[in-house]
Amino acid sequence: MSTAFPMTRAARPEPLRDSLTMLGRQIRRLRRYPELTVIVVAIPLIFLLLFVFVFGDTLGAGLAAGAGPVGGDRADYANYVMPAILIMTVASVATGTSSTVSMDMTTGITDRFRSMSISPGSVLTGHALGAVVQNVISLVIVLAVGFAVGFRPAAGPLEWLGATALLLGLSLAVAWLSVVGGLLARSVETASNYGLPLVILPFLGSGFVPTDSMPAGLAWFAEYQPFTPIMDTLRSLMLDTDLSAGTAWAAGAWCVGLTLLGYLYSRRVYARPRKA
């Protein structure tokens, strides 16, 4: 006959404390391997330089001819394309997060965490919050380069506050989706490909050209995919142009909905026994 002893206070899981401990683990990893952030930032920076310096004059002139929200030169197009580059930065971090989660799952450290008296969700929360921290660092770098190549926002303090809140909300949503990808992947190599669709989505939205310039079917998809209202809202906030209330609400709803979806599904996957 076995007797069940209640856990002592010291052994009882504390979700907040455990999550902060796991976040500290991810921050130490970022400090130890700064090249991980450099690789993440490289992709959006390459596209920023490519579209501003190679295509900027032509695309800027095309937007002006179509009565777009910018003028017609390279600097104006830099203002237009910057929200897409920021979204692409957030999406690029997702590939690294999925790989990190998959590495923990395949190397046995996750099994060790399961055997410890810690909150199960804290392991996943640490990964998600670590991704948000990496996003903040990456976004600051990309914005600095954007200013260097001609990005000139007209946003005031309130607009910048709104844009920052939206980017943080999107970062958290994408972080939880990338955690799901890492849990589902059977190898680190597979997990590294899970974020690729998110990197491509800005191209299939209003990130680089207005959606009304696209063929009908593609324009419909571009109009209703998650990143388009987020990019439109960021653009309106940063350039201090008219912002549709419906677009702003849609952007916020996508961030909240994707966060809940990723969080709940990742907890469900994490609770299942991992197949060999």
Rank of each mutant, 00 (worst) to 15 (best):
L86A: 00
L86Q: 00
I87V: 12
I87D: 06
I87Q: 11
T89H: 03
T89I: 02
V90T: 05
V90S: 03
V90W: 02
V90L: 13
V93N: 10
T95C: 15
T95Q: 12
G96S: 09
G96H: 05
T97G: 10
T97C: 12
S98C: 05
S99Y: 07
V101T: 06
M103Q: 14
M103V: 12
M103Y: 15
D104A: 12
M105K: 12
M105N: 03
T107S: 15
I109L: 07
I109Q: 12
T110K: 10
T110M: 15
D111C: 12
R112G: 13
R112T: 14
M116S: 14
S117W: 07
S117P: 13
S117C: 11
I118D: 11
I118R: 13
S119V: 07
S119M: 11
P120D: 11
G121K: 04
G121L: 06
V123F: 12
V123Q: 01
V123D: 11
L124F: 02
L124S: 07
T125R: 10
T125S: 09
T125D: 11
T125V: 14
T125W: 02
G126L: 09
H127F: 15
H127M: 06
A128Y: 04
A128E: 13
A131L: 08
A131P: 03
A131M: 08
V132N: 05
V133D: 10
N135T: 11
S138K: 04
S138R: 06
L139Y: 01
L139G: 01
I141G: 04
V142D: 05
L143Q: 05
L143C: 07
A144H: 03
A144M: 10
A144E: 01
V145N: 03
V145F: 08
V145G: 07
G146N: 05
F147E: 04
A148N: 02
A148D: 01
A148M: 09
V149H: 03
G150K: 01
F151R: 00
F151N: 00
A154T: 01
A154F: 02
A154G: 06
A154C: 11
A155D: 00
A155R: 00
A155K: 01
G156R: 00
E159F: 06
E159M: 04
E159G: 02
